Simulated scan of single mutants.
Amino acid sequence: MNISSGLGDKLAISLSALCAIHCLAAPVLLVLLPSLAGLALLDEEFHRWLIFAVIPCSILSLGLGCRQHRKLSVLFYGAVGIFLMLTLLVLGHEYLGETLERVLSLIASLLIAAAHWQNYRLCQKRESDCHCH
């Protein structure tokens, strides 16, 4: 398996999961512990930084994987998730409302993570099928 692709997929899955956890946990933590409101981890800025980390990692690893396994559907689902994340970054809760933004963020995170999971598995399968070592 291509080191860059496998590591990139794992990193993108982890960052997408972190984004989903952030979306779910932030409102609960703010209700339970209002003193955490000033904590940078619960800020929208943290969400932006996660997105800026996920996007290049996703483009690189999904692109490398697609070159290897040639399944454009994996690239498509990842691209839809990335596009949705970028749209949310631009529109934010000002235009969508906080609830819709969170729901769409979760959907985007799941799309990206699923694309990377499939990419990782296809790359592993392709390498195990190759007897050219």
Rank of each mutant, 00 (worst) to 15 (best):
N2V: 01
I3L: 13
S4A: 13
S5M: 14
G6A: 12
L7V: 13
L7W: 10
G8L: 09
L11K: 05
I13Y: 00
L15K: 02
S16A: 15
S16C: 12
A17Y: 02
L18K: 03
C19N: 06
I21Y: 06
L24M: 11
A26L: 01
A26V: 11
A26K: 09
V28T: 12
V31G: 00
V31A: 03
V31R: 11
V31W: 10
V31Q: 13
L32S: 13
P34Y: 09
S35P: 04
L36A: 09
A37Y: 03
A37W: 01
G38E: 07
L41T: 03
D43Y: 03
E44F: 09
H47K: 05
R48T: 08
I51M: 11
I51T: 10
A53V: 00
C57N: 06
C57G: 10
I59C: 08
L62R: 00
G63I: 02
G63E: 06
G63V: 01
G65V: 00
C66M: 14
R67C: 14
Q68G: 03
L72N: 09
V74W: 03
L75A: 15
A79M: 10
A79Y: 00
V80R: 05
V80H: 05
V80N: 06
V80M: 12
F83L: 15
M85K: 04
M85V: 01
L88F: 06
L91G: 06
G92Q: 05
G92Y: 08
Y95G: 06
L96I: 06
L96F: 07
G97V: 13
G97F: 12
T99E: 14
E101N: 09
R102W: 02
V103G: 02
V103Y: 08
A108I: 04
A108M: 08
S109L: 06
L110H: 03
L110P: 01
L110S: 11
L110F: 14
L111K: 05
I112A: 03
I112N: 02
I112C: 09
A113C: 11
A113Q: 05
A114D: 06
A114G: 13
A114H: 07
A115S: 15
A115R: 01
A115Y: 00
R126S: 14
R126F: 10
E127C: 14
E127F: 15
E127Q: 13
S128A: 15
H133Q: 12
H133Y: 09
